[in-house]
Design a protein around this nucleic acid. Structure first.
Lengths: 220, 220
DNA sequence: CGAGACTGAATGAAGGTTCAGTCAGGGGGG
DNA sequence: CCCCCCTGACTGAACCTTCATTCAGTCTCG
């Protein structure tokens, strides 16, 4: 075996990468298995040596990337104690990893939501683990007294997730691919401090203190 | 003419409603035109007397509902002066109208994201108008001094949109359709006041003041 | 030579769209 | 007043394209 240039899973990996590109470009239903095969430089039938079906192929793409992401995010968080840092790290990773692979990002933002079937399957698995992680971060922030006591961690986690998700979708749809990582700062600013001017702040801070975004150096 | 029981556009309307139901149940690509025809109690060919194609049918569903929604939201806002009230009203309407028609909500949350093509078309139109409205609300909040000066209205609008959107998607995917409107309060709580405990609040308010949510009766 | 990886033309199902026909109403002529 | 024909909305069976998937065969390595 190992006819190809490299190791064993090389062909499988090639197919997965081709799938990301083709799914990203045409969408799941618009993508032809033939196209995937062509991009992977493989015969049509070969796809079926590695994946049971088109659906299985998409699922594999989604699950493997999502799983890797959530695992890494968890590992990163384990090293930190301040929930604000955790959130920053996780969101930075989230945006950076999608920014690094626009095709993959497209598949995640668009194809993942394709049908209730896919959404449910993935939502039950990886995405819910991601939400779970966010929820835990919020929860620990609350119990540490860093985050507000009144928060509903479930809703807060969804707000965070939805916000990042929306930024990514906007980035995907934009023709001029501006930076994504750069949006972490303003995003965190809104998430941490909200829209409203606190009554207490009403008078203080007059100057153009636009560097509120650098919160992580202030306290703690 | 007017063979049907009612007025002219009755058949067209029936088809649109049927389309919402079928698209919601099976997804765009899973939906059969035959099913739509059957639900609308109309022959297959009749669909093509009113709509050019399957794609045209989905587009019509999406655009007509979205347009109506944005228009109403704008009208509502025109009656209000406090941007917090505006936000509350708009989000309440958003959640309430989708809660009232789960099938429509499904189409919006899932089918709208089906392909870059649809997403782009709608995103350029109705959705961007919605984002525009949110951005204006944030902007006026900032200039009125109700919202923080440091906000990036564009990012803030996306955060708001993403948050609501995510709540709706979660609701769609949940098998037990719990209330959606009820989530407006905790949502606004997070959006208005953010995650972080303000340093000033550190000491004050100890009691179980879980009614922070009732912000709209406090100041202003 | 055998085993297994790989090929790609052939297959069969599916389903969007078409279009030749049906039918109900109405208007005009007998 | 009745009948007949015309109009056009409506019908739905058939068409035809488009793929996902299969499998009989080829190729290569050990």
């Amino acid at each position: 075996m190992a006819r190809g240039e490299q190791g064993k899973g090389a062909k499988r990996k090639a197919i997965l990468e081709a799938a990301v590109r083709v799914f990203a470009e045409k969408g799941y239903f618009g993508a032809r298995m033939r196209d995937v095969a062509a991009v992977a430089q493989v015969a049509d039938g070969t796809l079926y040596l590695y994946f049971d079906s088109k659906e299985d192929l998409l699922t594999a793409v989604l699950e493997e990337h999502a799983q890797a992401f959530v695992e890494r995010a968890r590992r990163d968080c384990a090293q930190l104690s301040d929930p604000r840092h955790m959130l920053q790290t996780v969101l930075e990773r989230h945006l950076a990893s999608l920014e690094a692979n626009r095709a993959l990002a497209t598949v995640f933002q668009i194809e993942l939501r394709h049908s209730r079937k896919f959404l449910r399957r993935i939502a039950k698995g990886q995405v819910s683990q991601y939400l779970q992680l966010l929820q835990e971060i919020v929860g620990s922030g609350v119990s540490q007294g860093v985050f507000r006591r009144e928060l509903d961690p479930k809703v807060a986690a969804r707000v965070i997730f939805g916000a990042v998700d929306e930024l990514v979708t906007a980035w995907i749809l934009a023709q001029k691919p501006s930076g994504l990582k750069e949006q972490v700062a303003p995003l965190l600013d809104v998430l941490f401090y909200g829209l409203c001017r606190t009554t207490n702040q009403e008078v203080q801070e007059k100057g153009g203190n636009h560097e509120r975004t650098n919160h992580l150096t202030g306290s703690l």
